[in-house]
């Protein structure tokens, strides 16, 4: 930890919802160029952890250091400007706006329009279906397309670290495969990704390293391949 290749370092954070102690002193880190996954059951605290990193929630104790800067005093909308993008759970695209306008909102933090068109093209390269539907109102897209739009929107902010919250949620297995192969391609293109998933099988298959979160505590961690073969992980998350 603390070496200069570390893009994100979460140190001993405790997060509360009123009296409920949701995150109990967890620490983890992400290195540049990695896919790190946080797996765990519903209610384990995965989304809470992401919201704490992106500034929507604040830890009571502990620190989040991103790109060498302690984020504790920085408002959420300023954190995005620093290149930390989150694709929220349930996609949360702007349903009443067009596909193109959603992408424009992704580019909101940019100071200039330089290379903007090239970046739209890059998003369309990863998600050709968005190009076909660019004028359509986002609410008319299918679930898989909405997930693609949410990811494309995050890409438009040119993130140094992209956090994905349950990209497989509510999607048919074939679409889950498609989304994960795109995540894999993004990673091969150089993106650094923190992936939160209930679908441990898929997440471990593309990740470099993984952390297992159970009721607000990290119970296991290690490289993804070895966790995949770990008996405890197998029985709890991979269906035996």
């Amino acid at each position: 930890m603390g070496n200069e290749n570390t893009i994100l370092s979460v140190q001993d954070i405790n997060v509360f919802y009123g009296p409920i102690h949701a995150i109990k002193g967890i620490s983890f880190d992400v290195q540049n160029g990695e896919i790190v996954t946080l797996i765990g059951a519903n209610g384990a605290g995965k989304t809470t952890t992401l919201h704490t990193i992106s500034g929507l929630l604040r830890p009571r104790t502990g620190t989040v250091v991103y790109d060498g800067v302690n984020l504790s005093k920085i408002p959420a909308h300023k954190i995005v400007e620093r290149g930390l993008a989150q694709v929220p759970e349930g996609r949360r695209i702007f349903l009443q706006m067009s596909v193109m306008e959603n992408l424009e909102m992704g580019a909101y933090v940019r100071k200039s329009n330089e290379n903007l068109d090239a970046d739209y093209e890059e998003v369309f390269h990863y998600f050709p279906r968005l190009k076909e539907r660019r004028k359509q109102i986002a609410g008319t897209l299918s679930g898989g397309e909405q997930q693609m739009l949410a990811m494309g929107r995050a890409l438009m902010s040119k993130p140094k670290l992209m956090m994905l919250d349950e990209p497989s949620m509510g999607l048919a297995p074939i679409l889950v495969e498609e989304i994960f192969s795109i995540i894999d391609r993004l990673h091969k293109g150089g993106a650094t990704i923190l992936l939160v998933e209930q679908n441990a099988q898929m997440a471990l298959s593309i990740a470099d390293r993984a952390y297992v979160l159970e009721t607000g505590t990290i119970t296991m961690s290690g490289d993804a391949k070895s966790l995949m073969n770990d008996d405890r992980v197998k029985s709890a998350y991979l269906g035996g």
Binding site: S54, L56, P75, A76, H77, K78, V80, E81, A85, Q86, P88, R92, I93, F94, L95, Q96, M97, E101, E104, M105, G106, Y108, V109, R153, S157
Partner: peptide, 24 residues
């Protein structure tokens, strides 16, 4: 306009708009 679109974004989903870097 950019501000007008940001307004629509905030009005639809405040949390998501913040994640776009829009100042509430």
């Amino acid at each position: 306009t950019k501000l007008g679109k940001a307004m629509r974004a905030v009005s639809e989903d405040m949390g998501s708009a913040q994640l776009m870097g829009i100042s509430l």
